[in-house]
Design a protein around this nucleic acid. Sequence first.
RNA 1: CGGGGUGUGGCGCAGUCCGGUUAGCGCACCUGUUUUGGGUACAGGGGGUCGGAAGUUCGAAUCUUCUCACCCCGACCA
Length: 568
Amino acid sequence: MQKFSKLLCNTLKEVPNDAVIPSHQLMLRSGLVQKSGSGLYNLLPLGLRVIQKVENIIREELNKVGCQEINMSVVTPSELWKESFRWDELGDLMLKFTDRSGRESCVSPTNEEAVVDLFRKQVNSYKSLPLTLYQINTKFRDEIRPRFGLMRCREFVMKDAYSFHENKLCLDKTYDQIHSAYESIFKKMGLDFMVVEADAGAMGGSDSKTHEFQVIANSGEDEVVISKEANYAANIEKAMTQRQPLDFDESLDNLTEVSTPNQKTMEELSVFLNKPLHHLLKSLIYISVKGEKRDLVQVVLLGDDNLNEIKLKNHLSVDEIYPATDSELEKSGLVKGFIGPKGTPIKCFVDKSVSATSAYVVGANKQGCHFLNFIPDRDGKMSPVDLRLAKEGDLVNGATVSIKRGIEVGHIFQLGDKYTKLMSATILNSEGKSVAPLMGCYGIGVGRTAAAAIEQSHDEKGIIWPKAIAPYHISIIIAAKNNPEINQLAEDIATECEALGLECIIDDRDVGIGFKFNDYELIGFPSAIVLGKKWINDKEIEVKMRRSGETLTLTRDTISDRLLELIK
RNA sequence: CGGGGUGUGGCGCAGUCCGGUUAGCGCACCUGUUUUGGGUACAGGGGGUCGGAAGUUCGAAUCUUCUCACCCCGACCA
């Protein structure tokens, strides 16, 4: 039986100054974790219990759909990564080192290569497929900027699963199974989450299915575009929405230069010319990088739209893009604040929401000047592409969308045969032909999920754990000093509750009652039993419920059964 | 990497501008008494070479130079 007096758990009254979001602050204050370095955390006993519960829920649900658990070495040799070219592609994200014999290795940031290597050494026949392997293991990504405690660490625990298939149909089936297993996992943990369409990003193929599991929370680092009516949900990186209908300027007047001294922003210009923002066009200059090659790219958007950089990057299929710096603009003879699509030699893309036949105000590529009545079809040479960043109020299938912040706790991908091909992993299919199997990969951030649960479930007093991942279910608070009867009662009730699967911790610390109450609320056990006056005087037992804050009076003979009903 | 900021006991801070006793306060910790239904009160106590190095000075937490670490805003992502 766990006694609080023996538990390594020092709660903090004050907020450590480097924690800025609730989950991070509360994890530190309630003695769940301890920081050991930038993006590095030690799990203390209570924190570890939470993490283990998350892990076990994941295990249970994945095992149900036939996934097999394995454990791969955390350190992986460079050779594997070189086969997929990711040794260089992932670059500094990987923590690389050389051991005493001069072998290069890294601490795995993900395990596609390792699992393909395992697979190719173990599996030769289509008869073994489909096969889904997973592990719950430590990963290391040398994040550019670790932050928010367990939300974005460098070293973290991730559940990563990999599936292998003979054909797309089979991959789709497993993908859907994992999709629903993920829904069960996050539902079990009591999280309010959404499944959204995602961009495949750096980790996967480009035109395969991929979804993210986003926990809706204000501190989320992602933006999610949602429309319930249209049954639409997508990461903003991917979201393709339309603008509300616009009144275009249909004038056919000739292109006219107009003096616009010092009107450098869209807003200033809009006021100066007395035209709505969407009658102006915004020109952005980006540098695209592919290998050693650097190119200038011009992007033209409606004056009140913003660029979705991911869309541009995907459209160009380049390694990286970034806004041109002032000196790069100068070098190209462009005038910051007055850039426009008229007569520039730069490759130019225009967002689809710009009407090709309507008149716009554009920069004249000349200090202090703009053009009026620029009509794209007539006056420019631009290819229309969907490039704009979705925004609140846009339309999808006629329904308006809203934008919420989300924490990406899970991501599922269809990888196709990218890795099996690169690493020559083949199987014999039913026709006796050697083929590269298709793969899916599926991740869940374990620590991040625990953090997300706190983001979503806390109040000014502390954490409010959902039952499924609470470190203990009940804190039995001893509110009487040196009272053998009460002490015994606490032990008896604890034993009884544990028999029903309710985990108890007995708060037998030699501190004031207020201290115990505050810690119970801070750590956020779902309920507390208070043994003190009420028992001594009336033989009644007081029970507090953390989420509702209500206080109940129960009797000794029904207490454990009642608690089993009450703690949900 | 670019921009901003902070380093003083486990945590939160004052002191730094304007150098000068033995570096201070709150929380936490230890001892004793007290209190015991919402962080009780009192008394005593332990713990810091002021991130590090070099320099200026009779004298440096304080000034100078260099360095390291950490945090916040952006690019990365489970």
